[in-house]
């Protein structure tokens, strides 16, 4: 069993390094968010004096507080963009997976091209278009680019999932006397749901993450999302940078994602890998 022990040790070390590599920056931010203003620059990883002030300060003033409004914006914008993107992507993915028509390759190729598209190249024109259309600094002004840039990811993921669905079951159910709607609801929907859900998680993470559009196409709390708002916190005075508050807010937007990831990790892995291998 000599070899077994050695392998076990090596494996444990590898594991430890990977876990540390992944977690240390997050832990550091968490520690920083508990530091008091006078210990924030003491260079210690673990706070010498603990405080919750950095968190409570974020919500002082209710709706006018620095974080609440951006947090609501982020949630609404990401949810709406996800819903629309998934709806549009489902139609397209269904057509590509099940129907026969010319232009299939062009659509998939085009979607791939958009997945690689540099967002900065569209920021200027979008800014100019949005200001004429009155979409500048509105929810729609962010939702539209988010859902578009998320579409390729959603389409690829959904096509991969839809191809796995045994669509014959639908016909079988109809033969057994179910109406088309019933057949769809009772048979196809449960089979498609996991794929749709997976795609939705990936799109949500994408929309939640964006920074370039968020800082370029918004200019007030009316539509500014959390990543953009982080850069705009105010400290004790005009020239003081609110390190503790930023760290605390950063943790607050990270926690939902971590919970998400913990609960849905299998689906996320399946979603990220399905598109690439079978696409």
């Amino acid at each position: 069993m000599q070899r077994g022990t050695r392998e076990y040790t090596l494996w444990s070390i590898g594991l430890l390094i990977v876990v540390l590599f992944a977690l240390v920056p997050v832990l550091w931010l968490l520690m920083l968010s508990f530091k008091t203003p006078d210990t924030v620059s003491d260079g210690s990883f673990i706070p010498n004096a603990w405080t919750l002030e950095n968190y409570t300060g974020l919500f002082e003033g209710g709706f006018e507080s620095p974080l609440l409004r951006p947090l609501i914006n982020s949630i609404v914008i990401a949810l709406v963009a996800t819903t629309i993107a998934i709806a549009l992507a489902s139609f397209t993915a269904y057509a590509i997976a099940r129907l026969d028509f010319p232009g299939k390759g062009a659509i998939l190729g085009g979607a791939l091209a958009i997945a690689m598209f540099p967002p900065i190249s569209t920021v200027g024109p979008l800014f100019d278009m949005w200001r004429t259309l009155g979409l500048y600094d509105t929810y729609a002004g962010l939702i539209i680019p988010y859902l578009t840039f998320a579409l390729p990811l959603a389409i690829y993921t959904l096509v991969a999932f839809f191809r796995e669905i045994p669509w014959d079951l639908e016909q079988a159910a109809q033969v057994d006397g179910a109406t088309p709607l019933q057949a769809f609801r009772k048979v196809i929907l449960p089979l498609a749901a996991p794929g749709v859900f997976t795609a939705a998680i990936l799109v949500f993470i994408f929309a939640w993450n964006d920074f370039v559009f968020a800082i370029s196409l918004t200019s007030s709390d009316a539509s500014r999302t959390v990543p953009a708002a982080l850069a705009f916190f105010t400290g004790e005075s005009t020239f003081t940078s609110p390190t503790g508050n930023i760290a605390a807010a950063a943790m607050l937007v990270t926690i939902p994602i971590i919970i998400f990831v913990l609960i849905f990790q299998r689906r996320i892995v399946a979603g990220l890998t399905s598109g690439a291998v079978k696409g």
Binding site: L29, P227, L230, I258
Partner: peptide, 8 residues
Amino acid sequence: PYGIVTVV
């Protein structure tokens, strides 16, 4: 790390 917001 994958899930974390890039700005964060």
